[in-house]
């Protein structure tokens, strides 16, 4: 700060003091006078305090940078999860479709087997009840004799 600025500062200080002495300062003027003093004083902190505040600020800013990076990678991982989820779901749908197809094929083939056996039994000489009848063998032997 130059000497002229110092003198101006000093003159302002004197002026303020005179104004205070004259008892004609409004509430707002007193407040601003005090705030100017406080502002000026706050700019002249010790080196250690200034350094410590700077470190605190850096820590806070780094925290935000980390959060923003984490959020960014969070979006990517969410997308990855969704894709992975869709892949899993697609696989499950294919497996279920294969099981249904297998079941349907089994169902239809067993029906065809039943139809075939029925047709065989109907087309044979003896009715199926004949083989279940206990007296049939005896009757057959007597007939042969």
């Amino acid at each position: 700060m130059s000497t002229s600025e110092n003198n101006a500062d000093q003159m302002n200080g004197e002026l303020d003091r005179n104004m205070l002495e004259a008892n004609d300062l409004t509430e707002s003027q007193v407040a601003h006078y005090v705030v100017d003093l406080l502002d000026h004083h706050a700019q002249h902190l010790t080196a250690v305090t200034a350094k410590r505040l700077s470190v605190a600020r850096s820590l806070a800013v780094n925290q935000v940078a980390r959060q923003q990076t984490a959020n960014h990678s969070g979006v990517l991982s969410w997308l990855g999860d969704q894709i992975e989820h869709h892949r899993t779901m697609s696989t499950a749908v294919v497996v279920v479709a294969m099981l249904l197809a297998f079941y349907a094929a089994q169902h239809f083939s067993s029906n065809a087997n039943l139809e075939n056996s029925d047709a065989f039994l109907l087309a044979s000489d003896l009715p199926p009840e004949a083989y279940a009848d206990k007296g049939f063998d005896t009757w057959l032997v007597s007939k042969t004799d």
């Binding site: 700060m1 600025e5 010790t46």
Partner: peptide, 26 residues
């Protein structure tokens, strides 16, 4: 280091004294 002020722009000892006294009072 705690007692060393970071650059005080005012070189005038009397101005510094007045300001310092006023700020202490405030």
């Amino acid at each position: 280091l705690e007692t060393i002020d970071v650059e005080d722009g005012s070189d005038e000892p009397s101005a510094q004294l007045v300001r310092s006294q006023t700020i202490q009072l405030v």
